[in-house]
Design a protein around this nucleic acid. Structure first.
Lengths: 110, 110
DNA sequence: ACAATTAATCGTAATATTGCGATTGACATG
DNA sequence: CATGTCAATCGCAATATTACGATTAATTGT
């Protein structure tokens, strides 16, 4: 019925899925890459940088922000976005742990 | 209009987004975790393990397979699924590279 | 050949996502 | 206070995702 059964899964699984979903769009990956490379936080430049409408960029930023991966602070007329270090570090750790569970050596099954 | 503008982004960005989208569901994370921990490939056990219908599990497996993250081989009546080592390693590498671009030290912007 | 088992596929309903034009709200400056 | 700028929000259309019952296809054992 189109709704994910979150009750079935662990908090870790749900959390990781939410974070990955936030990352799982080329525009949002591009936004994060730009924020990271510019270090200093950017906002409306993204509209020029990527070829998407202002409303669309704003929506993607909202999703990244609601996932907690970025934070925005008012800077005069515009808004300055940057990485939220804690959430970023947590995600990196969780992903590293996830990939570490697989050792490609004993892949002699199928 | 509900369709991602892939032409705008790089191949790397699009590829990473597709892989992350395949991971971005708690059921698929649970499936991968089970496949990894059982090492020996499993198929219909997932229906019992998670509390989802057979059709639903099959659909999730199809998505993971079409993303190239797992592979399935016929084993009698059932089908044996396991990690596709190359795609897995590639994704891990790409993600590591992505996270490495951010050094939380100079996070003195916002 | 026949029944049983396993998993893919079809069809459908409910909901979510993507993208954008248009509007609105907040703030700075003349 | 009027005006301009920036970004959030609203409303909409097109499409994608999630979940499942029912059916189908393939294979094994009798």
């Amino acid at each position: 019925m189109g709704i994910t059964k979150t009750e079935i899964f662990t908090d870790e699984q749900n959390h990781l899925a939410v974070m990955l979903k936030a990352l799982a769009h080329p525009a949002r990956i591009a936004i994060l890459q730009h924020i990271i490379s510019a270090n200093a936080c950017i906002c409306g430049d993204l509209v020029e940088e990527l070829g998407l409408a202002q409303a669309t960029i704003s929506q993607h930023l909202k999703e990244l922000k609601s996932a907690g991966l970025i934070q925005g602070t008012i800077e005069g007329v515009s808004i300055c976005y940057c990485i939220e270090p804690k959430a970023w570090a947590k995600l990196e750790k969780q992903l590293t742990g996830f990939f570490k569970t697989y050792s490609g050596i004993n892949s002699n099954c199928c």
